[in-house]
């Protein structure tokens, strides 16, 4: 068997579509990309002459910046389009926007959108490669890839690790992508949150679900916290932020039940004192800033591999 050397697909829409071999290829490639970011001249000509459009329907400084740096380090020409969600209602449809962009023949479109499956719609319309930068509550594949990269960097493996993911499971695209990726790579995934924030049919996701946080953390190699969306949560899904923190907040005391070399992750932006105590966020176990740094390398890998993958698919 020859080793996989390209993604045999036009788009990266979801981790659910990827094979374990493809995931490994992306992570391996990201290691080389990480080195590029450590050079004095942080730029390689790999995507010279390629046009990448960052089409963002949701504000996201972090993800957009990360993609933009990744694109620039690969020498792609980048174009940022931020569409305020208010203008979507009266403005043109996503399909029309896609057709207009397509007419300008970009090579790739990085899409962030508040509707699950928006990137699938774009993919059906566009010949350009589509990279999902987060679609509604569905997936955020590059986040899961950078999480996996960060875990692998610290733990040297993914298989067999106990990963506890805690927080708003219901609305989290980061959760869905991470479950897909980690279970494909052989990790033991535990998810934990109040029953009001537990997705239906969670058992069918191949994870252990619990609302008892001690169960989730016990002997965990990795603890990943998910953001609580303050504005719509309080009073609706749980009584108060204070109470949430008292039951599910990650404190140093709770963390003692995890393995001694546990790492703490958070996709950001963090709510200190809600899902995570500041001592934990800033503590020695935290790899939260590594995640941000690795995001660029992983996104470079994805962009690079898709740029070739489209060709492969067309010829196959």
């Amino acid at each position: 068997m020859t080793a996989l050397t390209a993604l045999r697909r036009k788009d990266l829409l979801a981790i659910a579509d990827l094979s374990p071999e493809e995931i490994s290829l992306i992570l391996d490639t990201a290691e080389a990309m990480k080195e590029v970011g450590e050079r004095p001249i942080k730029k390689v000509p790999a995507l010279r002459g390629k046009t990448v459009v960052n089409l963002f329907y949701e504000p996201s400084t972090r993800t957009r910046t990360s993609f933009e740096i990744a694109e620039k380090r690969l020498s792609a020409d980048t174009l940022n389009i931020a569409v305020a969600s208010s203008s979507v209602v009266k403005g043109e449809t996503l399909a029309d926007t896609a057709l207009n962009l397509e007419a300008m023949n970009p090579d790739m479109i990085v899409l962030r959108h508040s509707s699950s499956g928006a990137c699938h719609l774009l993919s059906r319309i566009c010949k350009s490669a589509i990279v999902n930068a987060g679609d509604g509550m569905h997936e955020h594949p590059t986040q899961a890839l950078l999480d996996a990269f960060t875990i692998r960097e610290r733990k040297k493996k993914l298989k067999g690790l106990k990963v506890a993911i805690i927080g708003d499971l219901l609305h989290s695209r980061v959760l869905r992508s991470n479950i897909q990726l980690l279970t494909k790579m052989g990790s033991e995934v535990w998810v934990c949150g109040p029953p009001t924030l537990m997705p239906a049919g969670i058992a069918q996701f191949g994870v252990q679900a619990t609302s008892v946080i001690d169960e989730a953390i016990a002997d965990a190699d990795v603890v990943m916290l998910l953001r609580i969306q303050l504005e719509r949560m309080e009073g609706a899904y749980f009584p108060s932020l204070r109470e949430y923190f008292s039951v599910f907040g990650m404190t140093e005391a709770r963390l003692k039940q995890a393995k001694s070399d546990v790492i703490i992750m958070h996709p950001g932006p963090m709510n200190r004192g809600v899902e995570i105590a500041s001592e934990v966020a800033d503590g020695p176990y935290s790899v939260i800033l590594d995640q941000v740094a690795n995001g660029v390398a992983v996104r470079m890998a994805v962009l690079y591999l898709l740029a070739g993958g489209a060709n492969d698919e067309a010829a196959a």
Partner: peptide
């Protein structure tokens, strides 16, 4: 267009 590509190494 076709064939295996080199894997990017460090």
């Amino acid at each position: 267009a076709v064939g295996p590509r080199a894997i990017v190494r460090k």
